[in-house]
């Protein structure tokens, strides 16, 4: 969990006239998409993510849910950052995140019952998705609401990009379909390994390899 890696991106007190999408603010969104990706670089949010990437549809619902929780928790913690007593900081954060997740869960049960059944406990596990707590601690607690929202959007999208790519390969190879449509023909026999957790790990490992070969990121190991 490289929380220290994100400290330097804290936005210092800036002039009030700064435009909403200044260069610095745009970076908040674009950085997490590749060079500072929450999953492949910051190693956050892998916990519940891999388990839901068997098919594209539930994966996208998961991404939307995480994005929603991330934006609103970052926003509310950022607004409360001056009044939260530091001693109960973690509990307050968890409480707010848990309430947001409970709301998402209720909404999914009402409007996307099938998907909520497939995601089962993994909706609840958004609470402990390290991306959310990680961004709250590393960014929202020290920054104004608007940059915090942008940071949430950026990280949420960075997370979604990886999740959707993993799900793309897993559904294609595992069930021979995309979004439930059989694209590899009726006779394609699904690859069981891709449906199982093993497939997720290996696909993600290869994706990281490809990404780092391209952008030149290296890890001391």
């Amino acid at each position: 969990m490289s929380t220290e890696a994100v400290v330097n991106e804290e936005v210092a007190a800036k002039p009030a006239s700064e435009p909403l999408f200044s260069k610095k603010n745009r970076k908040l969104i674009s950085n997490p998409l590749d060079g500072d990706n929450p999953i492949t670089v910051q190693i956050l949010g892998i916990c519940s993510a891999l388990a839901v990437t068997v098919k594209l549809v539930p994966t996208i619902m998961m991404c939307v849910s995480v994005l929603f929780v991330l934006i609103f928790s970052n926003l509310s913690i950022s607004m409360l950052r001056k009044v939260i007593p530091s001693r109960i900081r973690i509990i307050v954060q968890l409480l707010i995140v848990a309430s947001l997740v409970a709301i998402v869960d209720q909404v999914l049960q009402a409007y996307a019952y099938d998907v909520s059944k497939q995601l089962s406990v993994f909706v609840g596990l958004i609470i402990t998705n390290c991306i959310i707590m990680g961004r709250l601690e590393a960014f929202a607690l020290a920054n104004k609401p608007w940059p915090s929202v942008l940071d949430a959007v950026g990280n949420g999208l960075g997370y979604s990009v990886i999740l959707i790519s993993v799900a793309f390969f897993r559904e294609l190879l595992g069930s021979g379909s995309l979004f439930g449509f059989k694209v590899l023909g009726e006779n394609y026999t699904g690859n069981g390994v891709m449906m199982s957790p093993v497939g997720a790990c290996i696909v993600l490992g290869l994706l990281i390899w490809a990404q780092r070969a391209r952008n030149g990121y290296r890890e001391e190991a």
């Binding site: 009044v83 007593p85 109960i88």
Partner: peptide, 22 residues
């Protein structure tokens, strides 16, 4: 912000808001 009264009050308020919302 570090008095017990403030902490309790704050916690209570957050719980109340979250509870009502849920």
């Amino acid at each position: 912000k570090n008095t017990n009264g403030y902490i309790f009050g704050f916690a209570l308020l957050v719980i109340l808001v979250c509870g009502v919302l849920l």
